[in-house]
Design a protein around this nucleic acid. Structure first.
Lengths: 218, 218
DNA sequence: GTCTATAGCGAGATAGAC
DNA sequence: GTCTATCTCGCTATAGAC
């Protein structure tokens, strides 16, 4: 039993940190909050460690490097958006559109996740940046899900046929992100009201031009 | 002639730097490019100075501090968006909507300004950040201009009456910003096509419901 | 106006004790 | 696992010569 690869040290961000480790989780959580507030680059690992009540070196024991900490934060906190998009896609049709402002309402109730990803995306626009590839893939994935939702609706005749799904998916994600950004910058912006009006307009735009496949109601 | 306030030193970012000073302009320009690429916080004033071929201390002679340099960059480079919005407002009506994708085409031709402000806005979301107030005011101003354009069109009967102008203005700026962000992150995103489809949908949404004020054509 | 020199700080990371 | 100590580096800013 040489100490070359002790079983105690979780070297990288591999293991999913879903609450249980205590210390490591506390550090990921503290880092998420500080990154959301001041960005990755402007946060020191010492500040993160201090918030949990340990030293910087203890933090490095868990994550190896500052970049490792970022990986762990992204692993742990990202995915909410993808899950939400997948939920909508599962529901489908006009009901999915009706649920869009729900994301806004959740953001207002808990702004920190929205802030975290707004900040991290901007910090990783450049291809050399540390998490660039992650966010590129994340958006491609989200666009695929939303485009699929639209294409399905068009195939079923519950959505108008003319908008190109990929472009509309890009536009939908853009509007959500852009509204969040303005509201994060300036709390005077009424995120929920803007989201609701937007979603209503989108529903109108996607309404089939002629009664192609009306439900039993009318 | 004591040297207490020599006439040579432009202390702060007061004077509009519209090309003429040479050195100072070169520094502002170099800083803009580096800030766009890596953000304000990740750029050192030494890197900016090096690009122009002077030392960091020469740069500080002009701007006093790194924050002073940021002020100068914002003074010099911001305003393009406001000018564009004012142009659209001056044109008004459906023609203004038709010109919206022009911004996208200009961004694709010269991505650096879009990148600069995407990065700077994200770095200044937090109220404590150095240029936070500037960007809050900038967006409020832009929203006012766009909301005015919409309200004018509604008053004249060339736009549908139901969208609330302030909320729609927020949504329009959000979509523009969000599309830019996705495209900056991933060049595979077709910014121009997405903008054109979006603008077409917006025009449809704003078309008056009944032929209130049709032109002589039809 | 631009330089050299340097102060002074805070960062990330490593070594090794306990 | 967490600590103390320390290395090394890069940063902003100041002082003062030319």
């Amino acid at each position: 039993m040489t100490a070359t690869e002790s079983d105690a040290a979780p070297r990288s961000g591999r293991r999913a940190t879903r609450h249980g480790d205590s210390r490591r989780d506390e550090l990921v959580h503290a880092a998420s909050e500080l990154f959301a507030d001041r960005g990755y680059r402007d946060t020191s690992i010492a500040q993160v460690a201090e918030r949990v009540g340990v030293t910087q070196q203890a933090l490095l024991y868990y994550f190896g490097s500052k970049a490792g900490l970022l990986d762990a934060v992204i692993d742990d906190r990202d995915g909410a958006a993808v899950e939400f998009a997948e939920q909508l896609a599962a529901v489908g049709g006009a009901e999915a559109l009706r649920r869009l402002p729900g994301a806004a309402r959740r953001n207002v109730a808990d702004p920190y996740l929205a802030r975290l990803f707004a900040v991290l995306v901007a910090e990783n626009l450049s291809p050399e940046s540390i998490a660039h590839e992650h966010f590129v893939q994340r958006y491609r994935h989200l666009r695929e899900i939303v485009a699929g939702l639209i294409a399905d609706g068009q195939r079923d005749g519950v959505f108008a046929a003319d908008p190109e799904p990929q472009l509309l998916a890009t536009e939908i994600l853009a509007t959500i992100d852009g509204l969040n950004t303005q509201w994060l910058l300036d709390p005077e912006v009424d995120l929920v009201a803007a989201s609701e009006q937007w979603a209503a307009g989108l529903a109108e735009r996607l309404a089939p031009r002629r009664p192609t496949a009306r439900d039993a109601r009318s």
